[in-house]
Write a protein that binds this DNA or RNA. Structure first.
Lengths: 205, 205
DNA sequence: TCGTGGCTTTACCAAATGGTAAAATTTATG
DNA sequence: CATAAATTTTACCATTTGGTAAAGCCACGA
């Protein structure tokens, strides 16, 4: 059993586990947890279903593993928001990084969105333990900037929500955006410019 | 067969069909299309599974019916955006109505979000035929306001996306918002105030 | 009261799906 | 090379699930 946590994984184990996770990201993000099947994941990974169950204890473990890995990547832009930097620049850089992620990692964004949409049944602990402390830390940083008069005072919590919502929208609602933008190739740059304006005008004192 | 479109439905038919749709909204919005089962819907509706299939041809027809009904409600606030009104007031009223809907009809919001998230497999035609023309009409209205100098000029398409994203976020990501707001009872009013500030500062010339 | 047609239940079914046992095969190791 | 360990395949299985057939029930008009 490669699931034993005490031994270091072999070359084959690392390769196959990452193949499985890559395939599972595709399938889960497109069909949701329940909509994804082990057969689909197996085919996308180029492995047999029992072979997949040799590497993971079950469908749920694959999903949870994916979600855990995702949390790091996902929170990284917020982690790097620097209390010592220029306030408005820091916020605008955060927005830009989140928007880049929506464009570069749409599957991850949709996987996350699907999980939250259904009430975070397999992620509630991670939200509580991983996201909440970081969120409150950065809210305090932003509140400090506002108290110092460096930013227009607004509720930092809703500010962060609005950044998440507006950036992730381009990944999570891509099907809708595609229809309404009629494949405008300047769409991505347009979104960046719009959001820069939006948050600059909100926050510049 | 009550599915025949030529006869007017009986009292019982109307009652049971609406029971089924109400139950299905609960179940589909919570578990997604594939995650929902006819048994769950049947139990929630207080009917037997074959009885449900007496009123609807199958699972997919229930889902599509729900989506079709939803479209009207969903687009109504945008429909009522009035080219003759005061531009900023019209936009802020639109934001407010969308936010109210997110709070009052979260199941509908999540049903819609889930469908788009998975690429709108059962809704693409409706987006094209129902949403797109309305979207472009209202974009033109907003563009007109901007050209007249009544609003700060920004891309109206991204403006509308940002309104959808920020308002629906409170319904679609409620599980996350709940954790991070720690059940702050002033949360709803806070969101309304924040969004009013956000879009006022963006758009007021 | 007796049909008749609309509605509901009972008893199923075939396919899909998550998962397992164990044989077969490949890979690493002495 | 020989042997043990790791990996993969083959052949299954039990449950769930969307759906159906047909018998039974019930309200209502003649």
């Amino acid at each position: 059993m490669p699931d034993d946590a005490d031994k270091k994984p072999s070359r084959i184990q690392r390769r196959n586990r990452s193949r499985i996770l890559e395939a599972a990201l595709d399938v889960f993000s497109q069909h949701g947890y329940r909509g994804a099947t082990l057969d689909q994941i197996a085919e996308a990974a180029g492995l047999s279903k029992p072979n997949i169950l040799y590497y993971f204890d079950g469908k749920e473990e694959i999903h949870v593993t994916l979600l855990n890995q995702l949390m790091e990547t996902w929170l990284d832009p917020l982690v790097t928001l620097d209390a010592g930097g220029d306030p408005l620049t820091e916020i605008l850089n955060y927005v830009e990084r989140k928007l880049d992620m929506a464009h570069e990692l749409p599957r991850e964004s949709r996987l996350f969105a699907g999980e939250i949409l259904q009430g975070a049944p397999r992620m509630a602990p991670h939200l509580q333990a991983g996201l909440q402390p970081l969120f409150e830390e950065k809210c305090a940083v932003i509140q400090g900037w506002m108290d110092a008069g460096a930013l227009t005072p607004v509720d930092p919590r809703h500010l962060i929500f609005s950044i998440w919502a507006t950036t992730q929208h381009y990944a999570d609602f891509a099907a809708q955006v595609r229809v309404l933008m009629r494949d405008d190739p300047a769409g991505q740059a347009g979104a960046a410019a719009f959001l820069r304006t939006l948050f600059t005008r909100l926050l510049r004192p």
